[in-house]
Design a binder for these strands. Sequence first.
DNA 1: CTGTTAGCGCATTCAT
DNA 2: ATGAATGCGCTAACAG
Lengths: 333, 333
Amino acid sequence: MLQDMPTLTDVARLAGVSEITVSRVVRNKGPIAEATRSRVLSAIETLGYVPNRAAGSLASSGSQLMGVLLPSLSNIVFPEVLRGIHSALAATGYQPIIGVTDYDPAAEQSILSSLLSWQPAAIIMTGFDHTEATRRMLANSRVRVAELMDIDADPIDIAVGLSHRKAGYDAGRHLIERGYSRFGYVGHDWDADRRARLRYEGLCTALKEAGLALHAEQRFAGPSSTIAGRDTLAALVSASPDVDVAVFSNDDMAVGGFFHCLTAGIAVKERLALFGFNGLDIGQSLPLPLSTVRSNRLLIGKIAVEKLLEGGERPAEKLIVDTGYEIITGATA
Amino acid sequence: MLQDMPTLTDVARLAGVSEITVSRVVRNKGPIAEATRSRVLSAIETLGYVPNRAAGSLASSGSQLMGVLLPSLSNIVFPEVLRGIHSALAATGYQPIIGVTDYDPAAEQSILSSLLSWQPAAIIMTGFDHTEATRRMLANSRVRVAELMDIDADPIDIAVGLSHRKAGYDAGRHLIERGYSRFGYVGHDWDADRRARLRYEGLCTALKEAGLALHAEQRFAGPSSTIAGRDTLAALVSASPDVDVAVFSNDDMAVGGFFHCLTAGIAVKERLALFGFNGLDIGQSLPLPLSTVRSNRLLIGKIAVEKLLEGGERPAEKLIVDTGYEIITGATA
DNA sequence: CTGTTAGCGCATTCAT
DNA sequence: ATGAATGCGCTAACAG
């Protein structure tokens, strides 16, 4: 869509040097005499030259693009990961080129192919749920790949995240130690959100080990949201009024649950304890800070970028980075 | 970073046709016999061919990329705009390539130059606050540009958004009609967020016209957040206990204010009314749905893409699309 | 420290 | 409906 923009050749002519010299100045590569450099720089300035990266990318068979595949932008968690990615990228001159899969492996596959066609330096994906074709494309292209959020499975190359199963387990232990025994679970659709399910499984394991079991359970048949959490807790409480703690699939749901308690006049913690997952700001700004587990979304994005850019070729060894988590005691449990 | 990936030539050889025929099949362009098409398609399949868009872009001097410049990813509003952009793009085969400016025009300029180097089909930016160099680059490149969120100034090409000044004014009128008279304003840093300031100005105009003025005012010296809203309202109320309505710079701040009222035992609406801006889900899921103004973030992103892709060349006429807003009466004012 | 040569993979002419 | 020739703007590899 551009037009007769100035090219390397124009800059070179004006500066009285060869094209490759201009190229070197632009990329800060190779030794350049200060005098030439500044001559070139001023030529660039006066012409308003903007390099054409398509050409550069073609010539060097590589790009300064990093492909990012996110399942969704509706869940605040992924913009936060993207923010971490962006913060690590900012210093480097790389740009993220993003696609949204809507939790659909087939969509992921088609978007991946379209991202790969830009010869990205690396690919960042979410989770381990890929089609066979996706795996093949990744294998053929040999780009480095990071799979984020989760470390409960075997990665293609690099995994950065936390063990959701273990986080769920530890949350269960924590609550059991605090004396709760009649557990309710308030969840959302986990066909899409596989990690919520892993936390659920971890929780159940902890209960079983303590000779307990889930006392009640309600799952909203859609994505998580404050409103879903509010309504689903209402349903849970009306079906099983005697639960003493509600564990939510995440903080959004838990904040909604908190609102329900306010409305229904349920004394939070005294009569019903609430526990979330993620450690979002909104939960911590509640009149009673939410008891939850802090996951490090920014860090996950940041580390993924660092690790991807660190090495050159994809090594034989797979890499798993555990960004950990931390139980926030809070005031709701 | 790729390696010996198959190219058009390989596909052509395997299918027994010329390169250009393969190219035509890939791009669905020009007349192709069904027989050849399927032969080519299966060759593509067996080789696992992925087109190289850098080459395509170079040859055709255009790309299927849309540059998106966002001021921030921390404020939920911008991921939502991005979601609108993405939803409109999804059908088209375009990919967004994004940059985050942190509200800094100089950063915007450098990121823009880096985005332009990919020969994007169009550019989406936020607001009207650009450096001179930015304007020059945009003029030279001749790409179509949409400036989002705001329509209170003269756009380069297309503006999509709403009049924040008018929204602030209407909010003021609405509250005055409901009988409030001792207005407090709870804001955040508006050096960055120019639109918050426009709303503030609109509010002040409405007050002045009614023979009123702001009774009290507190501005948090940082970005908006629930916690900032909570603490800043606390400061406002302690300095001026007699305000009867608090107008917040946005919903995040207002939700924080609501939490403060809960904690401090202030009867919302009876003793102190609360009013926000944006119409976020979180505000509407409060025990008392927040009184606020709905801005249409998804729509803004969506329309921007549609308008950008609609025409070919940049026309002489500038285009301004008002996506409007709507006062949500809610229950907090 | 700087220049020469040769192509990267594809799309745009214009033919056939 | 298909093909041949040419070049997009840049960089790798080697010289010098």
